[in-house]
């Protein structure tokens, strides 16, 4: 059985206008997407900004209400659970936020920040709680004494580690990482990403990794889904998508990855020109009259593309 299954998820926002604020249309932030996560894998959601990838992540964790569709975690529909069951299942899904500055409460010490979920779900004595927090903070590579400091005393990378420690506190099964490194500089990005890979095996985590950076996605993910305007245009194993992209949008994204080798510069330029030409000639094959993608079509066991 799949670990997490998302069926026909839709998140619409009404557009109101006129004197009576009638609904005249909808912003389709997430428009009918379905995918599944297997236990222990890293699934990447990629797309340009505004394509709905963050909305998808926030809907899965319950910060945004889905308009339609179901989210099945180990076979249970999260939207249909009552309050008590939902708070119980909440422990299984945690989130790492994009901005390490606003995601930590500036008025609380690190101890209180990391202990917050413990205080909500487990009754521990202050000593046990402190020991657990110190273990976690050491595990993410910070000094145990730093639990008495405030967030503003840490650097961006360290703050993001505190965020990760907080997400790990309840031993979740799924972690939604919403652009966890896009606010960090490149040297720290690698550090945090490798660390996330290390703890994945240790804590048996499943990641839903949201990013717009294809290099990071390629480094981290086993399978990826490429989103465009709230829909999937291509989905499949990471290798297949990077080596054999089928959809023109994917091709354009991949051709846009900068190449560090100056000798291949001409090659890269040619590739881009080629993709651009193909896009102009054949975009009707990939997008309908409204500019939206077609439904996904399976082309191999592990690869689906949105073409006619």
């Amino acid at each position: 059985m799949e670990f997490l299954k998302v069926n026909h998820l839709k998140v619409y926002y009404p557009i109101r206008s006129g004197f009576f604020r009638r609904v005249v249309g909808h912003v389709k932030a997430v428009d009918d997407i379905s995918f599944q996560l297997n236990r222990g894998e890293t699934y990447g959601l990629v797309g340009e900004s505004g394509c709905g990838k963050t909305t998808t992540g926030r809907t899965l964790i319950g910060l945004i209400k889905a308009t339609a569709g179901e989210i099945l975690l180990e076979g249970k529909d999260l939207a249909k659970l009552n309050r008590r069951e939902r708070s119980y299942h909440r422990k299984d899904i945690q989130m790492i936020f994009q901005d390490p500055y606003s995601s930590l409460n500036p008025k609380k010490r690190v101890l209180d920040i990391i202990a917050e979920p413990i205080r909500n779900f487990e009754k521990l004595s202050p000593q046990e709680e402190k020991r657990k927090v110190q273990y976690l903070i050491e595990r993410v590579g910070l000094h145990p004494d730093s639990i008495y400091k405030y967030p503003h005393e840490f650097s961006g990378g360290q703050r993001q580690r505190i965020g990760i420690a907080r997400a790990l506190t309840l031993h979740p099964k799924l972690i939604i990482a919403d652009e966890p490194v896009s606010a960090l500089d490149v040297s720290v990005q690698a550090q945090v990403l490798n660390f996330m890979k290390d703890i994945q095996t240790e804590f048996q985590l499943t990641y839903l990794f949201i990013s717009h950076d294809l290099g990071i996605i390629r480094h981290m993910c086993d399978r990826i889904g490429i989103m465009y305007r709230g829909q999937f245009v291509e989905e499949g194993a990471s290798q297949e998508i990077f080596n054999n992209p089928q959809h023109i949008y994917t091709k354009r994204l991949i051709s846009a990855i900068p190449n560090v080798d100056p000798r291949k510069k001409q090659e890269q330029i040619k590739l881009r020109q080629h993709v651009e030409k193909e896009y102009k000639l054949s975009w009707q094959r990939y997008f309908n009259a409204e500019g939206k993608a077609y439904p996904l079509k399976r082309i191999s066991d592990t690869h689906s593309v949105a073409i006619l």
Partner: peptide, 28 residues
């Protein structure tokens, strides 16, 4: 709208606690 409030929600903190323990100190 800040992420630390969203974080508290995902960590299962009840609304009244978020108001008093998380938001209130930042308004002090």
């Amino acid at each position: 709208e800040l992420d630390y409030v969203s974080a508290s929600k995902t960590l299962g903190t009840p609304d009244w606690k978020i108001m008093i323990r998380e938001i209130l100190p930042n308004l002090s």
